[in-house]
Nucleic acid binder design. Structure first.
Length: 881
RNA sequence: GGGAGCUUAGCUCAGUUGGUUCAGAGCAUCUGCCUUACAAGCAGAGGGUCGAUGGUUCGAACCCAUCAGUUCCCA
């Protein structure tokens, strides 16, 4: 026999089996006649490293994929990475800066060479880390959002949308990130409440020497770009100013006083300065009144030449410096404290500057319609469903999507400008030249006469195609793979990217496949620490997942994370959870060691108690399978895990193995060991999706397997129906055993010491056939069924049967009486509550028949039990006298 | 300001179309055990007016209203 180590060592076992699975090519999928089951990974940033959020998210995907595979489906989990334009570009810029190289000194191609070098060096580390977790991805299918196929897909889609008239170029107020020097989408702006100041500044009315209007502003540095002052036309206070002009402080530019209902008469002074270049509302007012737009900022957030003053000074520094200047000029009236909301860039965390610029937009109003309906009608199901509301709200308030970014790392916009400012849109330089020649009528045009748009596309403009593009469904819409694997089944992601990614994938799915991209979306929560703080590098509260795996095993970490994570709820992670996971591994391992250590004697017959226990456990297992399948169907993975956790710990180890366990150093019969091994096999299969490694290890040790066998391709167990009665009966035996254990503990009687048991059977609660189990588990020397009252015995009841353990003088009769009186009181109270219903005509007539039947049964049971208790009480009392 | 959600045991959460005295799980706590698989364990136990108030109903943790607290999203 193989030597079984007393401690389970996950590190050796996990590496061994992952290697085996890879060698056997178990993760790889090809289209065939089986039902497909597909998941595409939410591609992590190519240069990212694994964090706790990835651990949770990918554990869940692996659980789903592994179960589907065991169910006989053709499971395919496509891995890959995202080029993450802003994040990656920022990292590369940072790295170059540390080397003393400024991005501004590099050409586009030089910079991209650095970026690719960085990508090749750090790219894909995260995918290697996922292997440690046990992720059963089809690695042969690994994709990257900027590889050849995906890039071609993105460009093709841009051109297609442009040709459909859905993409347009427009000068708009965008969210400008002065650190990254790019526009970002509305979704990438976080608003934060801030304590700031409200500055009251007075503007001299032109043609007077001492008449002023006073405005209130939080951004005095933008005064230099003012092109009007605005009041509400209904505001009597300012009626006399109509048609006049004021002088902008410090620079004395004359600007008109205009009237617009936008102005809130209650706020500030009721008089608003208008800076169309630097505020979205001002911009719109400017459009209405045909105001001049003066952009006083550079791309990096410093003041530009047009500001005239403080040129080159950063916007925040300029705010500080302009105050004393205004004061000196006599324009500052007062300063108040004020709370306002400021937008910050999600990527760089600097304050967003509203800025006018030419950008590319995708019209969203029409193409979102099928996508909105799909979720609304539950064609795509969200788990938990509450996120439907969020999705609907966004869809209903959708704005055009700014898809251009002023970056180099990404998919360059396939727009080529001619010298006259017109442009063509084309997939390649060659095609662009061809089109440009037609457009201009000049056949001599070459690529050097064209200038390609400098901008790249928003990262999400590639990831929204992900479920299609990984199967090359954009470039080759009729290929075998896309037709087989698409639509995918489940998407596992975070609610925070429901707009960025989920919604847009649905939109793209309908636009390019005429079909949904996935059927179910499982939203995981955010991994937080015990104090509910988000896990982050800067807080240092995030453990390194690989350290955790090394310490507790991947299996331990997987279940540890899942223990506390119902769908959509944040998970409050604590290392004690992984500890619990590891302890569970240990428990399973020891159960295995126990049965493996038994000596088998094929000459002995199977004891009755073993037969009964095995019969029961098989029945129990059917119930467990039904429960687990139900949990899986509802995506309640933590409940499914909890079910198998309790089954293994309590039912399998605590009851089954304890019952069939032979006496010390005694052998076990062949039938029992055979059946228990089969049961163990089945239990391990139910466990496998959650704990792939230890289940595989024990599965192989359990019996002789062939090379190429694996639990991961074994069959997911199926339930047998009609097992309820066996389970119910067995629960009564457990109750009796527990009752005896409680007495042992109360009276301090060691388990070794055999006890006598007398039973006064009632209609329910005692089943003679199970005596062998009772005798073994309660360590009984004698079991007698009697009609007589037992004196000097301590008693308890299961249903209407009474159990007595004679203990002579130890027994305190009065205590027994008190105990019975309490039970009686409880049961009587119960009966009263039941009779309230059965005695109520309206209940009897209006409640469903099933409920009424149940109540009747409750009533008769309770009445019977009361009768029994009263009899006992009477006889106890008489023996007391 | 607009929208959505949440409030159940010390903690994290279940509680499926109202129907067992329905108040539940895991963890934590307490008690007793190193019982020859497992102390990373076993056997037991305690603990909640289901945020508050009112209403609907034969019946409410569940449905409705109001209030309080709290979280998130959007502007």
């Amino acid at each position: 026999m193989i030597e079984i180590p007393s401690k389970y060592d996950p590190s050796i076992v996990e590496d061994k089996w992952y290697k085996y699975w890879m060698e056997q090519n178990f993760f790889h999928s090809e289209p065939d006649e089986r039902e497909p089951y597909t998941i595409v990974i939410p591609p992590p940033n190519v240069t990212g490293v694994l964090h706790m959020g990835h651990m949770l998210n990918n554990s869940i995907q692996d659980i789903l994929v592994r179960r589907a595979r065991m169910q006989g489906k053709n499971a395919c989990w496509v891995p890959g990475t995202d080029h993450a334009s802003i994040a990656t570009e920022a990292k590369v810029v940072d790295k170059l800066r540390k080397e003393g190289i400024s991005k501004d000194d590099l050409s586009r191609d030089e910079f991209l060479a650095h970026a690719w070098e960085w990508t090749h060096k750090h790219g894909g580390i995260i995918l290697e880390q996922l292997k440690k977790l046990g992720a059963s991805c089809d690695w042969e299918r690994t994709c990257f959002t900027m590889d050849k196929v995906r890039s071609e897909s993105v460009i093709k889609v841009f051109i297609d949308l442009y040709n459909k008239g859905l993409i347009y170029r427009g000068v708009r107020m965008v969210n400008w990130d002065p650190a990254a020097k790019t526009a970002v989408s509305d979704e990438e702006v976080n608003h934060k409440e801030e304590k700031s100041k409200l500055f009251y500044v007075r503007y001299l009315i032109e043609g007077t020497t001492d008449e002023y209007v006073t405005v209130a502003t939080t951004r005095p540095e933008t005064i230099l770009g003012d092109t009007a002052v605005c009041v509400n036309p209904n505001d009597d206070r300012f009626r006399h100013l109509a048609g006049k002009k004021v002088l902008v402080p410090l620079i004395n530019r004359a600007v008109p006083i205009i009237q617009d209902e936008y102005v809130d008469m209650e706020f500030g002074t009721g008089c608003l300065k208008i800076t169309p270049a630097h505020d979205i509302n001002d911009y719109e007012i400017g459009l209405r009144h045909q105001l001049e737009v003066i952009d006083t900022f550079n791309d990096d957030g410093t003041l530009s030449e047009k500001a005239q003053l403080l040129v080159g000074v950063d916007r925040f520094e300029a705010r500080k410096q302009i105050i004393p200047m205004l004061e000196a000029a006599g324009n500052l009236v007062k300063i108040e404290d004020y709370n306002n909301k400021v937008g910050y860039s999600e990527r760089t965390d600097v304050a967003i500057e509203p800025k006018l610029s030419a950008q590319w937009f995708l019209k969203m109003t029409d193409i979102t319609k099928p996508a909105a309906a799909a979720v609304e009608d539950d064609e795509i199901k969200f788990y938990p469903a509450k996120f439907k509301n969020l999705y609907r709200h966004w869809m209903e308030n959708i704005k055009d999507w700014c898809i251009s970014r002023q970056l180099w790392w990404g998919h360059r916009i396939p727009v080529y400008y001619l010298s006259d400012g017109s442009f063509v849109v084309a997939e390649s330089d060659e095609l662009a030249v061809e089109q440009a020649r037609i457009k201009s009528g000049n056949n001599q045009l070459t690529i050097s006469d064209l200038r390609q748009d400098e901008d790249v596309l928003d990262t999400w403009a590639s990831s929204w195609l992900w479920p299609i593009a990984v199967f090359d469904g954009i470039n080759n819409p009729e290929n075998k793979e896309i037709n087989y694997y698409y639509p995918t089944n489940d998407l596992v992601t975070a609610p925070e990217i429901i707009f960025f990614w989920v919604a847009r994938m649905v939109i793209a799915g309908y636009e390019y496949r005429g079909n949904l991209p996935f059927k179910n979306v499982y939203f995981t929560g955010i991994v937080r620490d015990k104090q509910r703080r988000k896990m982050s590098k800067s807080l240092g509260n995030s453990p390194d997942p690989l350290d955790l795996i090394a310490k507790y095993g991947a299996d331990g970490v997987r279940v540890g994370m899942l223990f506390c994570s119902p769908a959509g709820n944040d998970i409050l992670f604590d290392e004690s959870l992984t500890e619990q996971g590891r302890n569970f591994s240990s428990k399973i391992w020891n159960s295995f060691r126990l049965i493996k250590g038994w000596e088998v004697d094929s000459s002995i017959a199977q004891p009755e108690h073993s037969r009964l226990a095995i019969e029961w456990f098989k029945a129990k297992l059917s119930e467990v399978i039904v429960t687990m399948d139900d949990h899986f169907d509802k995506y309640r993975l933590n409940d499914a895990l909890m079910t198998i956790y309790n089954t293994i710990r309590d039912e399998f180890s605590g009851w089954l193995l304890e019952i069939v366990k032979p006496a010390y150093q005694a052998p076990v019969d062949a039938k029992t060991i055979e059946e228990v091994s089969e049961i163990f096999d089945e239990v391990l299969r139910l466990l496998h999706p959650f704990m792939p490694f230890i289940s595989e290890e024990i599965w192989h040790l359990l019996k002789e397997r062939n090379h190429g066998d694996s639990i991961m391709i074994s069959e997911w167990p199926k339930a047998v129906t009609g097992q309820e009665e066996i389970c119910e009966k067995f629960e009564l035996i457990k109750e009796a055993i527990t009752g005896i254990r409680a007495i042992r503990k109360e009276k301090d009687i060691a388990n070794k010491e055999p006890l006598q048991l007398f039973i006064v059977p009632g209609e329910k609660g005692y089943i003679p056939a199970y005596n062998p189990v009772l005798i073994k588990m309660a360590n009984l020397s004698e079991l007698d069924v009697t009609g007589d009252e037992i004196s000097g015995a301590i008693s308890f009841r299961v249903n209407t049967s009474a159990f007595y353990i004679p203990l002579g003088e130890v027994v305190n009769l009065e205590e027994e009486i008190v105990k019975i009186e309490e039970e009686l009181k409880y049961t009587q109270g119960f009966l009263v509550s039941v009779m309230k219903k059965t005695g109520n005509e309206r209940f009897m007539s209006s409640a469903p028949a099933q409920v009424v039947e149940l109540e009747r049964k409750k009533q008769s049971d309770a009445e019977e039990k009361i009768k029994m208790l009263e009899e006992r009480l009477l006889s106890f009392k008489s023996s007391l006298n």
